[in-house]
Design a protein around this nucleic acid. Structure first.
Lengths: 108, 108
DNA sequence: TGTTTTGCTACATTATTTATAGCAAAGCTA
DNA sequence: TAGCTTTGCTATAAATAATGTAGCAAAACA
């Protein structure tokens, strides 16, 4: 699937509304998981594979390319790392962590 | 794929950490888009199909079942609607809308 | 120079999503 | 109450995406 670019047709919006481009990007397998893990600090490719437990290298590489092309991560000497944009995005989704704990109680 | 249930193995976490179950659920195509659209108010199946522009009925039905089983939406006489949990979740992801506008500027 | 580690790529298999057709049930409407 | 329309799906086949495994070239290390 092509990179979802705001302003161009994306999944959910022919006009490419920014939020829809973002939801398209984040709604791909592992995308949010990668951002979530990288907030702890830069990671190598192999370490990310371990964090994600069952991601295939093919998919990991694809997601990393998409996230780089979307300016959310960059490669540093220490490995992949969140950009300023990536950190901001993480901070927006961070509250999901605590919320999920309450939500989880529904499943008993 | 099976419904991601907190406490059971999910994509990204063998132990089923709640946030990973949530990211698994939301990281499926259209899941966040559906929640996003439903915040405006209850929608019928056909109307959701229109909102989502290119979702197939097969996938829409699958996502709706998952979101219902996850207590984020319910069926009402007016159509599918967010539950209290669903509304809370929407409110958590709502800030993505404005943030995405700034992020979109990177793509010029 | 030999050994590891790293960051991938290749490839085949499996899973997911799409696209399209269409049908049964419910809700009008005349 | 006999049609016509709308709704909420299901069925099926084709396309696309993700997985699992093997392995390789380059860099780091010993």
């Amino acid at each position: 699937m092509a990179l979802p670019i705001p302003g161009k047709p994306v999944r959910g919006s022919k006009s490419g509304a920014p939020v829809m481009a973002l939801l398209d990007l984040l709604g791909r397998s592992w995308a949010m998981g990668i951002v979530w893990h990288l907030y702890k600090g830069p990671s190598t490719f192999r370490r990310l594979q371990e964090y994600c437990e069952t991601i295939s290298p093919t998919t990991l590489n694809k997601r990393l390319k998409e996230l780089r092309d979307s300016h959310l991560i960059v490669r540093t000497v220490e490995g992949y790392a969140l950009t300023q944009h990536g950190k901001e995005l993480y901070e927006l989704i961070e509250p999901l962590g605590n919320w999920a704990k309450g939500w989880a109680k529904n499943f008993k």
